[in-house]
């Protein structure tokens, strides 16, 4: 259950440490992600989930190493990093007026030359990506006028066209309604399953993580990250680990109307 150290993992994090203002925020964190996996990062507020994601992306100076398909991320230039990692931050701001299509086209930036503009084929792919996330009718709409949820979908479309080996998404569902939340996670599942890539997304809702992600990475404190595999680990084992983070709760397996099995977390009252 704890960081399964495969001989040749697709994405591997070793002894990752980051401190700020003499405070150790991440202390020798290690974990692996296999090829084709969509991992969910869970943990309490302020525990360092976003910092972990930013550190993995090379945005923060750190000790330790991250390797993707055998290549060290620390040695990559911005351009190479962009060709290998897609990142959706928690908050996104664009200070000028642009269309949703222009925002998606930004995903091709790292593959274009200094004076090169996106090709007709790339524009077509950007439009297809917008269609995939249900924004086909918004291609020409100004990005600022989209709702928060639509913006998240637009950024997911940008991630689709980036076509990278590692997807890192920080709460990509935070502004989405029920249907779009499942759409975005299904899309991410399709994007990773059986593919030459892995995804790591930070989620606040452990139920969604249980539903769509495997493995789950539970960040308990600066130096403890527990890896769970919902398809292999027992409910009892996982429940214990969830309790250490979220307090009293029960993890139950139940079936939906179509007979599909789901894992559900139920809060328990302490009294």
């Amino acid at each position: 259950m704890n960081s399964s150290l495969e001989p040749d993992p697709f994405f591997s994090v070793r002894q990752l440490s980051f401190s700020f203002d003499s405070r150790q925020i991440l202390d020798q964190i290690s974990f692996n992600l296999p090829r084709g996996s969509l991992a969910g990062l869970l943990g309490n507020n302020g525990i360092g989930k976003t910092t972990l994601l930013r550190t993995l992306c090379g945005l923060l100076p750190h000790a330790g190493s991250c390797t993707l398909a055998g290549k060290a991320l620390e040695k990559m230039s911005e351009r190479q990093l962009a060709q290998n990692i897609s990142y959706i931050p928690q908050r996104n701001e664009i200070s000028i007026s642009l269309s949703a299509l222009d925002v998606v086209l930004m995903g091709f930036h790292s593959r274009l030359g200094l004076f090169q503009a996106p090709s007709a084929g790339q524009r077509r792919r950007a439009l297809e990506a917008l269609e995939t996330v249900g924004l086909a009718n918004c291609a020409d709409q100004e990005y600022h006028t989209l709702s928060e949820g639509q913006r998240q979908l637009c950024l997911l479309a940008r991630t689709l066209v980036e076509d990278t080996g590692l997807l890192i998404l920080d709460e990509p569902d935070s502004a989405l309604d029920f249907a779009n939340r499942h759409l975005i996670l299904r899309t991410l599942q399709k994007l990773t399953a059986g593919q030459d890539r892995a995804g790591l997304l930070c989620l606040h809702d452990p139920w969604l993580a249980l539903e769509y992600c495997d493995p789950l990475l539970l960040l308990r404190d600066a130096r403890t990250i527990v890896t769970l595999h919902p398809l292999m680990d027992t409910c009892q084992e996982m429940q214990e680990h969830f309790r250490e983070i979220y307090g009293p709760l029960s993890l139950r397996r139940c079936e939906d109307g179509c007979g599909r099995s789901h894992l559900v977390l139920l809060p328990e009252s302490e009294d």
Partner: peptide, 13 residues
């Protein structure tokens, strides 16, 4: 015009 960290991960030095 994009947030600095996002721009870096889109390949902008």
């Amino acid at each position: 015009a994009v947030d600095e960290e996002e721009a870096r991960l889109l390949g902008v030095p």
